[in-house]
Design a binder for these strands. Sequence first.
DNA 1: TTATCATATTAGCAATACCTAATATGTGTG
DNA 2: CACACATATTAGGTATTGCTAATATGATAA
Lengths: 106, 106
Amino acid sequence: MQNIDIDMKVKLIHGFSNKTRIQILECIKNQEKTVSQIVEEISGNQSNISQHLACLKGCGIIVGRNEGKYSYYSLRNQHIRDLLTMFDTVLGDVQNDVACCDRHID
Amino acid sequence: MQNIDIDMKVKLIHGFSNKTRIQILECIKNQEKTVSQIVEEISGNQSNISQHLACLKGCGIIVGRNEGKYSYYSLRNQHIRDLLTMFDTVLGDVQNDVACCDRHID
DNA sequence: TTATCATATTAGCAATACCTAATATGTGTG
DNA sequence: CACACATATTAGGTATTGCTAATATGATAA
């Protein structure tokens, strides 16, 4: 694992480290959806969601396709789905600790 | 999955989303180490590493124990190790995309 | 007890990420 | 063509994160 790989790994993980992005991923975990469906389901702001979708897509976490005036987004593949599931597993282990951790660096 | 859980999940993932923290985790992935060992191995700054260790510990990702004047840190459990491995797996899938993504939100 | 080593904590600045509001693009429809 | 709808992009301010440098704590050894 070279340095270049670490940078990419961090970038990848960063894709998952935001509440809105996690909500989007949960939202499309089992089926592709349009931007407006996502916006509605997570009660988000269109511009904001669109930016996060671009981020997730740019990081290779999701894929998008256009059909007419709609854009459909879905998880890139099963590995991403597995990763989301694994987050839940790990969360179960650490839940109490995370609950009482309200800082990230100091 | 309630909102409260999403917040905790994001907090947990955030623990993994920094280069120094990933380096620390890789460094102690297979055996516990002291702070100074970690500082040396990843060529870091003592204060900085110490802060990141506090973050990782606060998030429940690692555990620490004191012995004399040394503090030893290691991964919390096998699930964390599995998660780190899974990041590598997923990275393999998306590597090209991540490589050309140099922004996170815009 | 004084000195030294290992680690933790604090403060403040620098960098990054995120949000909202405004605007642009692109597609279908009357 | 003009208009409406779906989505993307940009700009900018605000908030969060991470870094370095300085200092504090705590343990051992001379």
